[in-house]
Each structure stands twice: as structure tokens, then as C-alpha cells.
């Protein structure tokens, strides 16, 4: 998230570096069913982010003694590839950051998946970030929601996620990598589409209460746009069938 302060001019003439205005999303493209071995899958291109998500399950819980006789266990593994950032080749495998993100993403879907239907099983959500450009956790949640629907996992609601932050002194929706690195604050949110419940909220930087309130409203509107893209992607898949991924 953000740490360095305003060394880069993030706002020029009221526009952001990539020409967007405050409440514009980057281009979001979603494709469904791209991994035929998985029970469900999705690929999301969100600005410069490229993220794949595969779902397995409900399947036998491993280790078996970890299983619950009451509900399916939901497991999530979020991982960044070592080649996903412009900086040096990072160490592959889990990091403290990815551990935390796996947990908060899992907690989003624990609210949605009707896990009581599948006692003694587990449902795996695998997320791999191939190319990162800021806002990977929100793009991952958006992808996972579509992939879970594609896997036929019963859910109470759908979810969309968008981050909002402060680029320079302007509240700005869907920060890209530069805005995130040099901006003053970052607040990712995931909101369920029907109930409008907040399923993920994290935040860093300094914000007043009024700013937070305005930012939540911005995300709500952004999530509606993302939700539309999600449903269109699912419709396309079930009407026209599989399309080959253009990486």
C-alpha cells in the first residue's frame, strides 16, 4: 500500500496520470472458464493487472482430520508470481502480505458460499497474480466471485470489489500502481451486490471520517459497474461457450 508521499505529480489539470477522472475505473475485462481442468475459473485483466483464478471443490478435505461435519471448509491461496512487478525478481512462494490477503479474501467468501450444503469437504480458491498494477486484491475478489459462479458453488449473493484512495489530494477510485505507491491513502472494499454489505474493508494512510464516507459511496458506484462486467462475462460464457484467452 502507500508509503511515500507525493513525490510524483499524480493530478494534472484535475485529471489523473492515465487520463481518468476521479471516479473512473480502469478497463476491466473478464473471461470465464479458461482452465478446463478446474471446476470453475476466471481470468481478469484490470488495467495492467492480469490475474487467474481456479476453483476446485467441493472435494475431500485434506488433511481429513481438519474437516468439519457441519460445513465445507473454504480455503484460499492468493499468490503473486515472482515476475509480476516491475522491480526485481521477487522470491516465489507465500509472503507475509500474501498470507494476510489469502485470509481476508477467504473471509469475503465465507460470508457468501452456502458451505452448510457440503459437510466434510473443502472448496479451494486459487488466485495467481501474473502481472500486477495496483489493486490486485480487489481484482482477485472480482475474479474469484465469477470463478465460483462458474464452478456452480451455491452463493447467497455476488460480490464486486474496488479500491479507492487519495491520489495527491484528490479522492480517486481504483488506484493504479503509481497512484498507490505515491498516493496518500488506500482503502480496498468488497461489497455484495444485492445486500450492499461490506465484506472487505482495509485501509491505510490518513483520512477523515467524512473522506471515508465519501469514498465508500464512490466504491459502491464502482462496484455496480464491475458487477455488470461480471454478469456479462458469465452470460457470454453460457450463451456463446468457451472463448480462447487472449493473454
Amino acid at each position: 500500500m502507500s508509503d511515500s508521499k507525493g513525490k510524483v505529480e499524480l493530478i494534472v489539470n484535475g485529471k489523473r496520470m492515465d487520463g481518468r477522472s476521479a471516479d473512473d475505473l480502469r478497463d476491466v475485462k473478464i473471461q470465464v472458464g479458461i482452465i478446463n481442468e478446474a471446476d470453475g475459473s476466471a481470468y481478469v485483466e484490470w488495467g495492467g493487472n492480469k490475474i487467474v483464478c481456479g476453483i476446485y471443490g467441493p472435494r475431500e478435505c485434506i488433511p481429513r482430520h481438519g474437516a468439519s461435519p457441519y460445513h465445507a471448509l473454504i480455503k484460499c491461496r492468493y499468490m503473486m508470481s515472482p515476475f509480476s512487478s516491475l522491480e526485481e525478481h521477487s522470491r516465489s512462494g507465500p509472503s507475509r502480505r500474501s498470507n494476510e490477503l489469502s485470509k481476508v479474501i477467504r473471509e469475503v467468501f465465507e460470508n457468501l458460499i452456502i458451505a452448510e450444503k457440503f459437510p466434510n469437504t473443502q472448496i479451494d480458491i486459487f488466485i495467481d497474480v501474473l502481472q500486477a498494477d495496483g489493486g490486485t486484491r480487489t481484482a482477485s475478489i472480482t475474479a474469484a466471485a465469477v470463478a465460483l459462479a462458474n464452478a456452480g458453488i451455491p452463493m447467497k449473493d455476488m460480490v464486486s470489489a474496488v479500491a479507492v484512495g487519495k491520489a495527491g489530494d484528490m479522492l480517486a477510485l481504483d488506484l493504479n500502481k503509481l497512484e498507490d505507491n505515491f498516493g496518500k491513502s488506500d482503502m480496498p472494499l468488497a461489497i455484495s451486490n444485492r445486500d450492499k454489505k461490506i465484506l472487505l474493508v482495509q485501509m491505510d494512510g490518513l483520512l477523515t471520517k467524512e473522506e471515508v464516507m465519501e469514498m465508500v459511496d464512490m466504491v459502491e458506484k464502482g462496484c455496480e459497474k464491475v458487477h455488470h462486467i461480471q454478469t456479462e462475462a458469465l452470460k457470454r460464457f453460457y450463451q456463446d461457450g468457451n472463448e480462447k484467452v487472449k493473454w
Binding site: 472487505l200 482495509q202 494512510g205 477523515t208
Partner: peptide
């Protein structure tokens, strides 16, 4: 004066 962190 500010909110400085949030985590659900």
C-alpha cells in the same frame, strides 16, 4: 484527527 487503519 484521522482514521489511520481499518481491517475487517
Amino acid at each position: 484527527e484521522h482514521v489511520c487503519a481499518m481491517q475487517k
